[in-house]
């Protein structure tokens, strides 16, 4: 009896002791470390990339390129911006960046009065250099240091050449564009129209596709009604390309039409892969990011003064759809 009691108590002690030791160990050795409070010694350059379309893969690539370059240059870089072309939010971000006295702003150009106001007056008063990327603003209206991105006019030409080589030198082409054309879209349109002048057999119609999905669909229907013999659609805004194709396929076969667009949206590569798009003009977002940061740093370090205000052009190329042509 006595031995049994002692044995039971001892074994209980051993078991509890074991668990207690485990628990005490856990408590004693758990990490109480706060995140590093140490700050890198010297002040690094702080550069902000601000975009209107943070949600697109295009801008993700821009960010990637910029981040890579920033790492190389050993500077701090952040990607700010708005989603889905929310201009108000976008402008606010730019303003915050200015008030925050960052060392440089790389921004997606926006051809509006407010944007120009900001970049011209505020940026100048704070002495912050601004580089536009992907989308430019007219040089004379802003005090941007330079532009890094595609030559959109050239892109328009390139696409039209492709269309002509696919379709032949005659036919009807519908150009779809939003109500408020961006500076880059206007350049594209201009490029295409310049190119079309060489081909008198090709007739082109410009259709205002509005700014919403419904308006784009309506515009497509109207274009199909008014020009039953249309051969090709070119969407200046890649966001509307999807809507256009949907509308066409709801009415007739999609195949006989040549459909082209410019890549700066999310849908492009997917549509291309599905073979619905016959071709897009692809840009080099990573290159843009890298180059813009590199140029900004050159400016900040006084290596290249002044920057070429005409801009630094990145590569563009035509990518054809998979399923071949009609």
């Amino acid at each position: 009896m006595r031995r049994k009691v002692i044995f039971v108590l001892c074994s209980l002690c051993a078991v509890l002791g074991f668990f207690t030791v485990l628990s005490v160990n856990k408590v004693l050795h758990s990490e109480w470390e706060l995140p590093e409070t140490a700050v890198s010694g010297q002040e690094r350059f702080r550069i902000v990339v601000i975009s209107q379309e943070l949600d697109t893969p295009f801008w993700k690539l821009v960010d990637e390129g910029a981040s890579k370059q920033a790492e190389k240059e050993e500077i701090s870089l952040e990607l700010w911006g708005s989603y889905s072309k929310n201009q108000e939010d976008f402008l606010k971000q730019v303003e915050i960046a200015l008030h925050s006295k960052v060392d440089g702003i790389i921004v997606q150009g926006l051809d509006t009065e407010e944007f120009q106001q900001l970049t011209r007056i505020k940026a100048a008063s704070y002495g912050i250099p601004i580089i536009t990327v992907a989308n430019d603003v007219p040089v004379e209206k802003s005090l941007r240091k330079t532009y890094v991105g595609s030559d959109h006019q050239n892109a328009g030409k390139l696409l039209m050449e492709q269309l002509v080589s696919d379709m032949g030198e005659q036919g009807e082409v519908v150009l779809l564009g939003g109500t408020d054309l961006e500076y880059s879209q206007r350049l594209r349109l201009q490029g295409m129209e310049d190119s079309l002048k060489k081909y008198p057999e090709i007739t082109s119609f410009y259709v205002d596709s509005g700014s919403t999905v419904e308006e784009a669909a309506a515009a497509t229907r109207q274009a199909l009604n008014e020009h039953p013999n249309v051969d090709a659609f070119i969407a200046l805004n890649v966001r509307q390309a999807g809507t256009v194709m949907q509308e066409i396929s709801s009415r007739t076969e999609l195949e006989p039409y040549y459909i082209y667009s410019f890549d700066d949206g999310s849908d492009a590569s997917q549509l291309l892969a599905e073979g619905k798009l016959d071709g897009i003009v692809e840009q080099s977002p990573e290159q843009m990011g890298e180059m813009s940061v590199a140029l900004m740093m050159q400016w900040l370090r006084n290596e290249v003064v002044p920057l070429d205000s005409a801009g630094y052009i990145t590569d563009i190329r035509i990518v054809e759809g998979k399923d071949g042509l009609p």
Partner: peptide, 19 residues
């Protein structure tokens, strides 16, 4: 309060206060 993660933001913040 600065640390590795919020250094950028806090510098902005501080500058904003300055502005």
């Amino acid at each position: 309060l600065r640390n590795g993660e919020n250094e950028f933001t806090l510098t902005n913040y501080s500058n904003m206060i300055e502005s």
